[in-house]
């Protein structure tokens, strides 16, 4: 088939909501966009483990510690589902790792903010995972098959993340004055960065229109952000906390909450790498990658040795030599 016919058959599949699969023909830009989006998403899951891992040793109870470990393990799993989905588009894991560590690929800016108190674990679960869920649910129907299937798995697991965060905040809010103040402080610091997770305004989002046409995205950044604000504005009342936005107000005519303007300078500044923890996060990932190098090499050397059937006592010398 010539390119025109292939393009036509691709467009027809998109129109009819038929998923695109790895070996199907696809336009080069569709592939490129997916690689960018899926790998960015995978990197976010992996870097996202860092701010929370920071609190595992200091979780207030054994129960909270078990839950936090399980959540961080899930993030690792989510990163792996997504890396594998991206690999079906002909990019290798090594290339993606390199892009992350050299700063060529981005990850969600939210993870460049520090986690200063235990209440931050609550705020991250409720707000950051809450925002992620709103972003991710429509991605279960995204047009690329492996990405959609990965997202279904992720969404199933993600709702526990949001609930455990809300549960942490609820316990603090029902505790002492100091505990409630800690929860409010976490909300104050995480609210605006969470709204930024939906990306630039529609008018400033260069990829949105094409991604909607390809049905990679199903809703625009602003639509999803509004949904998130509406959800939080109601749930915050159960906590008895205040969302740090004086302009937040129910708008009867729109049927939505109005909210204040995001500090876009801060958003772009963090995206460009100047957030409070950008350097620290990449340094931690680089160290983990380098520290693991000998383990990966040893595992491969062992596999080789098993395959070639050399008895262990003899091959040990050979391995040391190289």
């Amino acid at each position: 088939m010539d390119t025109e016919a292939l393009q036509q058959s691709f467009d027809e599949k998109i129109d009819k909501d038929i998923r695109i699969e790895p070996k199907d023909w696809m336009p080069a830009d569709y592939r490129k966009t997916l690689i960018r989006q899926i790998s960015q998403h995978a990197h976010s899951e992996i870097v996202g483990m860092l701010p929370e891992a920071n609190w595992i040793t200091r979780a207030p109870t054994l129960r909270r510690k078990c839950i936090l470990i399980a959540k961080v393990q899930d993030e690792a799993g989510h990163g792996l589902y997504l890396y594998c989905a991206a690999e079906t588009l002909n990019i290798t894991r090594e290339e993606m790792t390199e892009q992350l560590l050299t700063g060529k690929a981005k990850y969600s800016s939210i993870f460049n903010y520090p986690t200063l108190s235990w209440a931050d674990m609550g705020a991250i679960g409720w707000l950051v995972d809450g925002a992620a869920i709103i972003n991710q649910i429509p991605l279960c129907r995204t047009s690329y098959g492996p990405y959609a299937r990965g997202m279904v798995r992720i969404c199933k697991e993600e709702s526990f993340h949001q609930r455990q965060g809300f549960d942490i905040l609820l316990s603090l809010c029902r505790g002492s004055e100091a505990q409630k103040a800690m929860a409010q402080d976490a909300l104050n610091r995480w609210w605006w960065p969470s709204l930024m997770m939906f990306g630039p305004r529609d008018a400033d989002s260069p990829h949105t229109i094409q991604s909607m046409k390809w049905k990679i995205k199903r809703f625009t950044n602003d639509e999803l952000r509004q949904k998130f604000v509406d959800m939080c504005a109601q749930q915050v009342e159960v906590l008895g906390l205040q969302i740090p936005d004086p302009e937040l107000k129910w708008n009867e005519a729109r049927g939505h909450y109005d909210f204040g303007e995001i500090h876009w300078d801060e958003f772009w500044n963090v995206v460009k790498g100047n957030g409070p923890c950008n350097k620290e996060r990449i340094a931690a990932r680089t160290k983990a990658h380098e520290d693991g190098e000998w383990v990966r090499r040893a595992a491969l050397a062992y596999a080789q040795k098993q395959k070639s059937g050399i008895p262990e006592s003899q091959s040990a010398k050979a391995t040391i030599k190289d």
Partner: peptide, 17 residues
């Protein structure tokens, strides 16, 4: 889905995790 592993045994253990 899929995953990377050095050998079959590690692949099965990683698949479990």
């Amino acid at each position: 889905g899929s995953l990377h592993a050095a050998d079959a045994k590690m692949a099965i253990e990683s698949a479990r995790d």
